[in-house]
Structures are given as C-alpha cells and as structure tokens.
Design a protein around this nucleic acid. Structure first.
Length: 601
RNA sequence: UACCCGAUGGUGUAAUGGUAGCACAGAGGCCUUUGGAGCCUUUAGUGAAGGUUCGAAUCCUUCUCGGGUAGCCA
C-alpha cells in the first residue's frame, strides 16, 4: 500500500541477500509459511508471515503456504480453511502476488530419482495450499532410500525404552538393540509397518546417526511412527506417519524452497535437518534453515495451548473473539492488516528473546486508522442538554468535516436542535483543576455548532445530574463571521431528536497484568472487565450506514467498528441492540494523564 | 549437569574496527473548533573484568545473567 519501508536489514535478509549475491540457486529466493492446522493463526504468526512474504516480495520470489499436517491425531480440515483466510487477509494488497499455492490434488512427481512440486499463483484456477501430507508417498520412498543406504532402521523398543535409552543432555545414550538389522529385514519390517500389521507404538523407523552426540536430536531420532488413525487429507491410506524432522526439510526440498525460516526452538534441530537432506544424495540444491526469535506481546498470551484453553473454557466467545490475539480476533476488532504489517516491520527480526509492548501495536493501529477512518459523533454515556434560548422544535443542519486528515473525504450535514446528548464525563459539577469541559456557569464549544453556557443543573432524587439547562451563544456558530471566540474546551454531541440507539462494546486487555505468561495459572489474572457492554448509546444517524468491518472514529473517543465475523462476543444481559459497535482502540488521551479517572469511555 | 543461542535507554531495533542512531513509551513546549492529529525540544543505553588496536558495542579470553533442547508434538 502506501508503505515503502526502508530496506530492512535484519540478519535473515542479510543471509538471503548474500546468497543471492553469491549466485546460490541462480539468485532464486523461495520461502514458505508452514503452519500446523491445529489452531488458528495469531499475531506471532503474523511476524513469520511478514518475514517470509516480505522476503519473497523484496527478492522477487515466492512464499509457499503449506499445511504441516504430519500428525493426524492433532489436526483437522476446519483449521485449514481459516488459516488460508487469515493469511490472505494479512497479505492482501501487499504480497498476494507472492503467494505460492499448488494445483488442487497435485502431488510431487518422481522424475528420475527426484521429487518436485512447483508453485503456482493465486490467479491460477483450482488452487489450494501445499500439504506435507501430499508428500507421504515421496517421503516413504525417501525413507526406503535411507534404509537401503544403511542409514535408517526399524526399532522395536517401546516408547519408554527409547526414551530411557536416549540418555540425557550431558549423558550419552545407548544404542537400540535393533540398530544393526540387515537392510533386507529393515525393508521388510518398514513395509509391514506401512501395511498396518503392527500396533501403535510397537515400532518406529529411526535414523542411524550417533547415540553419543551431545545434540540429543542426533541420537537416532524417530523418523516414522505407527498411527492407526485417519488423516483429514489422506483418509485411511496410511498407518505410519512421518515425524516433523523428517517431513519438514524434505517438504522444503520438494517445493524448491531456498530459505526455511523458523523459530529459535528449532535451532538444535538444524543439524538433523541438514543430515537428512545430505544423506539422501538429492540432485537439486538443498534448502537452508535459519532461526529467529518468536514474538511475545505484553498483556496477552500467545501459546496455542493457552489460547485453546481460553476458547474451551469459554473465557472468550471463540477464536475470533475481538479480545483474542488471533488474526481473526484482531480483524474482528478492526485492526487493519496494514497496521499489523507495519508493526511487524517495525519490531524487526533478531535472535534475542523479546517482548513487545502492546502500545506499539496500538500505535500502528491508530496511525493507520487516523489516516483512513471517517469521523462521526457518538455519545456513549448520555447526559441531556436543553438549550433554553432556542424555541421548542428548533432544528437546523450544520456541516461537519468527515476526516481532517483527508480533505477528499469531504463534509457531511448533522442535525442540531434544542435538545442534545453530551457525554456524561464532559460535565463536572465540581471540576478538578484544568478541566476544560462543561461546568456550572462555564462555557464549552459544541463541535461544529455553538458555544454554550451551563445555566442550571437539574438533578434526580439522589443528586445526580440528569439534565443541563444551557444557553447557546447564537453568534458563535462554527464557520460564521463571529465564530472565533476563544473557549477552552470543545465537546461532541448528538441531537436528541435524531439520535440512533446503539450498543457499544468497550474492549480492554484480556488480562489484568502485563505478563500473564509469568503467572502460575494465567486464568487467575483474567480481566473481568475485558468486555464492557454499554446500551442506550446515542449515535449520529449516518452511523447506521457504516458497513461492518469499516473503521470509524467516534470523535474524541476512539476508533470503532461494527463486528463482521461469525463469532460474536456475547453481551451481558439486556436486549441486544440492533446496531452494535465495538471499540478497536481509544484515541491517545492526554486527559487521562492529567486527571486519573478522568478518561471517558 | 552437556550442547546450542543470546545480552545496546523503560520496550524493541540499528551501527558489520572510526561521532552509539531510529521507533514506541516518558518529560517539556508549540498549535488546535477532536485534551485527537501535527510540529519542536528533551530524559535515558553498549552485562562485568581483562586483552588486541591509534581507535572496540563490534575481534579474543574469562565470568555473569537470560533463553532453548532430553515427544513415537510441531
């Protein structure tokens, strides 16, 4: 879009640039984003997506979207569709031309001793993401090849035995009793494993590397395990399934990936990644794995396990609840994809553990929305104002700017009358120092209208203000020749005669502490006020025409959006208003700093 | 305990042997018919100790601290 970022110089891009400069792979760059379809994508994935697609974009390459679906007991089809949707949302208008997919149903063809599955673009008809499960045939053949070379064997030890015999960091493991089986016997056993003749857990295929390696991932790691389970893509065709380490590097190879970027916890797997590729005598150049630090954000949790728990225990309405750090949640909340991308661009990529302040994300959301959002008036907690010097039934039309940041957005007409709603917080009977809004005997500018003076406060039995009787200075009309009166404060308002009733949901962080991950049980610091539902809010009528998903600024309050996705955060009690808005993010509020508790809605 | 990785203001991230910079946050100011936006100024940093060098955030050594790894998860 409008973002023309300065060329990023993180260490990953330096590696890629150096490879290109050295003419490795003929200067070709091909990355991949390989989620496991067992949950929804979150802001942490956004970092990886922006990295992988950003590199593809900057180096004229492609980034394959691949489902890392090698474990049939943990993954399902439902998540595949939502992942594709989330990725496309995030890269839309930015890198969708870099998205690598494949022809529906295509799987790698063996050409000679090689396997290869090229990517096609989004514009090709009948496409779908890549699936590691598409490579099960190829992977099986490659495993057989490893056995033939004497570099893999079938092991009959139980999971407990394998675990014990692996040793520990600092203590060498001991070899499997079946480590030196003949190639013929291994081949036969592996074929029987494939045929489903053995129960789960009874045998594995293991790489023959080094049981004494200081790197435990090199101690004859399991390559294949038996799982009598149906797979969402391959049905009941397989009874053995490859492990991540065996499948991942080879999937990269099959797709012609040049740079395989993953998070730091895979760093110790890299020697195994390389070992598998190098011991198969593959004809084409090999992909290279590099690792970077994952994203952590304050005020939220990021682990799939914890997010799942929030959903399952119904602390939120679903994966796409606008309070969730999932991409669907952020989208539902009204965060523009461009803001998420700008955020990812800014946080950089490095190997150091990092926790980014939520405020930085919000900064980019505000920056994007300030540029794009139409301004409208909305009163969240209404207080009646009657202008006693106007005749009953007085009505006039005033002009209001749609977006001061964008003159092309033009202006609109707003109705003004004798009775108005203003924000309860914009009146104080006993104002603190530096209170610039309305007070008894005080004046304030009604934005786009008149300066008014509060003449009388009408109260209920308990002494709470229920109505302000004010006078308007009719010479002060905005835009008029004598409108230039200096008044300290300006407040927003909505004509009572025309106001729309609506429900407005105020969202706060899901947790009451900035580092919920550091707490023993993160559910113990859930924020009971993460969702506040206000009903009876008064909206400028034009707000009914704002489509779901389109951001709008309620002047002086923040950015709001009508919910757009399936899942809805449920309101507490009360009839559901027809019109619902939720708050994406507040405006930056200098007031809040002056007077604690002075912040409104 | 073994192996691997990391350490620069509050939070991130640059500087690739040559003036420690940028963003966010913070503070102060200007402007303002959004206490918004915008503009200006400003506080604050190389984990420690040695060494190499004319010169070290950067190279070397030792230490300290933090993270990762011992699934038939990814």
């Amino acid at each position: 879009m409008s973002d023309a970022p300065l060329p990023s110089h993180d260490f990953i891009r330096e590696i890629v640039a150096a490879d290109v400069a050295a003419g490795r792979r003929d200067g070709r760059v091909h990355t991949r984003f390989p989620p496991e379809p067992n949950g929804r994508l979150h802001i942490g994935h956004a970092k990886s997506i922006c990295l992988n697609f950003g590199i593809a974009r900057e180096f004229g390459g492609t980034c394959n979207l691949r489902m890392d679906d090698t474990n049939p007991t943990k993954e399902d089809m439902e998540h595949v569709d939502s992942i594709v949707e989330d990725v496309r949302w995030l890269i839309a208008g930015w890198a969708e031309d870099r998205l690598g997919l494949k022809l529906k149903g295509a799987s790698p063809r063996a050409e000679g001793a090689d396997f290869h599955l090229p990517a096609v673009g989004l514009r090709t008809l009948g496409v779908e993401p890549f699936f590691a499960s598409d490579y099960f045939d190829a992977l099986y053949e490659l495993a057989v090849r490893l056995i033939r070379k004497g570099k893999a064997y079938v092991c009959d030890h139980t999971p407990e035995e394998v675990d014990r015999m692996r040793g520990a960091p600092g203590r060498a493991g001991e070899p499997s009793a079946h480590r030196d089986r003949s190639v013929a016997e291994n081949l036969d056993l592996f074929a029987q494993m494939k045929a489903g003749r053995f129960p789960d857990g009874s045998r594995t295929l293991r790489a023959k590397i080094d049981m004494a390696s200081p790197n435990v991932w090199l101690r004859d790691p399991v390559l294949y395990r038996i799982r009598h389970a149906n797979h969402h893509q391959t049905g009941d065709r397989w009874r053995i399934y490859p492990m991540y380490d065996f499948a991942h590097g080879l999937s990269d190879y099959i797709e012609g990936i040049t740079h395989s970027l993953c998070t730091l916890e895979f760093e110790v797997h890299r020697p195994l990644y390389d070992w598998i590729l190098e011991n198969l005598d593959l004809p084409r150049p090999l992909p290279r794995q590099r690792e970077f630090a994952r994203l952590n954000l304050t005020w939220t949790v990021m682990s799939k396990r914890k997010l799942l728990r929030l959903v399952e225990e119904k602390h939120v309405a679903g994966w796409d609840d606008p309070r969730m750090p999932t991409l669907a949640g952020l989208r539902n909340r009204g965060y523009p994809a461009a803001a998420v991308r700008a955020f990812c661009e800014r946080i950089g990529v490095a190997k150091r553990e990092n926790t980014i302040e939520l405020g930085l994300l919000e900064h980019f959301v505000r920056e994007e929305l300030n540029r794009a959002a139409l301004r409208r008036f909305a009163v969240l907690r209404p207080l009646k104002v009657v202008l006693v010097n106007l005749p009953e039934g007085h009505a006039e039309e005033l002009s209001a700017t749609n977006n001061p940041e964008d003159p092309s957005a033009g202006a609109r007409r707003v109705s003004f009358g004798r009775e108005l709603w203003i924000e309860r917080d914009d009146f104080a009977e006993n104002p603190p120092p530096k209170f610039f809004r309305l007070k008894p005997g005080g004046e304030v500018r009604l934005k786009n209208a008149y300066v008014i003076r509060c003449e009388e406060v009408v109260k209920d039995a308990r002494g709470n203000p229920v109505e302000l009787r004010c006078t308007a200075d009719l010479t002060s009309k905005t835009g008029g020749a004598t409108s230039n009166r200096k008044v300290k404060g300006t407040i927003h308002w909505v004509s009572a005669a025309c106001a729309l009733e609506a429900e407005v949901r105020l969202l706060e962080t899901l947790f009451t502490v900035p580092a919920p991950d550091a707490v023993e049980d993160f559910t113990s610091v859930l924020n009971p006020r993460s969702l506040e539902v206000l009903s009876g809010c008064k909206l400028e009528p034009l707000l009914a025409e704002i489509a779901p998903g389109v951001p709008v600024q309620f002047e002086r309050l923040g950015y709001f959006v009508r919910p757009q996705l399936q899942g809805k955060a449920e309101g507490e009690g009360g009839a559901r208003a027809e019109l619902v808005f939720l708050r994406t993010v507040t405006l930056k509020d200098a007031r809040a700093k002056l007077a604690p508790g002075g912040a409104s809605g």
